[in-house]
Write a protein that binds this DNA or RNA. Structure first.
Length: 251
DNA sequence: TACCAGGAGTCTA
DNA sequence: TAGACTCATGGT
């Protein structure tokens, strides 16, 4: 499969790094196909950059080289991660698809999240709150996540929870609002904000990131958020993605 | 077979 | 309020 691989854009690293597209796009020998639309991902940088959809999805407005330079200043850990995963970009996808993917992610393996998401897509057709609410997903072996998905869809469809309203809130209020959804706690809320709402100052901390922070920086669990905010500030999301990939490959 | 996984909700001290 | 426990399922 031909791949885009430049200093600031490696499509394979980006698509396979556990962000929303890892779950909402199917990988095959010819490239990537979006489950919701059947669209094939152009593997041509010019074509991608001329598309509003893909420019947003891959955050092509971000000067990744400059961001990497800033967050790796006097930081051997991130310098090494950037050498290893250069071209890894953050993605910005649909907020509802991101919410579904990360509700399914809790206490789950990436491979199985992919299967769970694909099964929900196959059963519901296009994954919308309405379709999730009315579909019978009881045979998909989602485990206890099934009821979280159903109840979250119900809150949106029947109780007027407005996901798009989140975008108008500041990050702290948005995080609190998202946690009103069943199955959404601090970590899943941060993933939704980062990958679904483009809040790149968020720093989702899963087991890999916690392990990485302790191993690479000797930061204890309770201090991780404050450390990340202080050290990487508005670029914390990029640091998190690099640390996640580094931890998964080395620990 | 045992442990763990891009955790959250609930119980208990 | 903090820490322990429980939840469903399957990858490693």
């Amino acid at each position: 499969m031909a791949q885009i691989k430049t200093l600031d854009f490696d499509i394979a690293f980006t698509m396979d790094s556990g962000q929303t597209p890892t779950f909402t796009w199917a990988k095959n020998e010819n490239g990537y196909t979006e489950l919701s639309t059947g669209h094939k991902l152009p593997l041509n940088l010019r074509e991608l950059s001329q598309s509003e959809k893909y420019a947003k999805m891959f955050r092509l407005q971000d000067d990744v080289s400059s961001i990497y330079e800033k967050i790796s200043e006097d930081d051997l850990v991130l310098s090494a991660a950037i050498t290893k995963f250069g071209g890894l970009r953050l993605t910005h996808c649909d907020e509802w698809e991101t919410t579904v993917a990360f509700i399914l992610s809790q206490n789950n393996h990436i491979k199985r999240i992919q299967k769970n998401y694909f099964d929900v897509h196959t059963t519901c057709g296009k994954i919308t709150p309405e379709n999730v609410l009315k579909a019978d997903i009881s045979q998909l072996k989602l485990g206890y996540r099934e009821k979280y998905l159903k109840e979250t869809a119900r809150l949106i469809v029947e109780n007027g929870f407005d996901l798009t309203h989140i975008n108008k809130l500041n990050v702290e209020d948005a995080r609190d609002a998202l946690q009103e959804l069943p199955g959404v706690g601090p970590k899943v809320a941060d993933c939704i904000l980062l990958y679904g709402f483009g809040k790149v100052d968020c720093f989702p901390t899963d087991t890999w990131v916690y392990q990485g922070m302790e191993k690479f920086y000797e930061v204890k669990t309770k201090d991780v958020q404050a450390f990340a905010k202080e050290r990487w500030g508005k670029h914390a999301g990029y640091a998190q993605q690099l640390l996640f990939c580094k931890a998964r490959s080395e620990l």
